[in-house]
Amino acid sequence: MIEMHSVVAGYGGGDVLQGLDLSVRPGTITCIVGPNGAGKSTVLRAISGQIHPREGEIRLAGSAIHGHSPAAVISAGIVQVPQHNGLFADLTVRDNMLLGGYLIRRDKARLRRRIAELEEVFPIVRERADEKAANLSGGQRRIVEFARALVLEPRMVLLDEPTLGLDPKASALVFDSTRMMRDLGTTVLMVEQNVRFGLRLASHGVVMERGRVLLADSSEALLARPDMAAMFFGSSAPPADPAEPEPGTGTGPGTDPQREDAHL
């Protein structure tokens, strides 16, 4: 679905992504994990056109999308759900849904049909339609954001830390809704700091560190690695061979794989 090749990108201050290679297969949920500052969210921003890579290329189903405006990326079929304030807080849920279809606003029939379909899948969109988005709880907002992202029937949805600040119950709702998105035929690329949650939800996992991909594998394989904890408990560890966790990072070798498995 998406291929990123030696991407170098960042904000004013410097390059966050330093030659990143990443690919996402269609129809999967892929989760990027990694310590803070590894550049996880930056990957999503680079894909969605909010920042433009300095070097490298990003292809969606073969055609290049790097350097495109956010609107062009959306037209190409990729919608991003940002980390914070994705919904327009002063607008009603219905207006937010309608704006999700901004690019097809002239095709009123299609827009109405899409919203009606999504209301079936996510009933809250209908129940709270006239309410201002600001009045929704954190979990409810996430669900509306998901529904809104699907109005355009995108090929791919980018989720930036969808459980950030949510309680366990709301996280569970996000978990279900994300699977639902995939079942509707959308490829999902997500960033999640809650590693087990993310990898449990996803079929594929990508571990990032310092702007590069350290590991990419099926999420079961990643979860089974005994050294996962070590990778997260020492963000200053150089990108060494991941099989050898940096000694002295507090935890690392002490993690018991048996216990991990018990939770899978």
Partner: peptide, 13 residues
């Protein structure tokens, strides 16, 4: 008015 970044992400110019 609510969020410029958010507006960009739904394709508003």
């Amino acid at each position: 008015a609510s969020s410029r970044g958010g507006a960009e992400l739904v394709g508003i110019d």
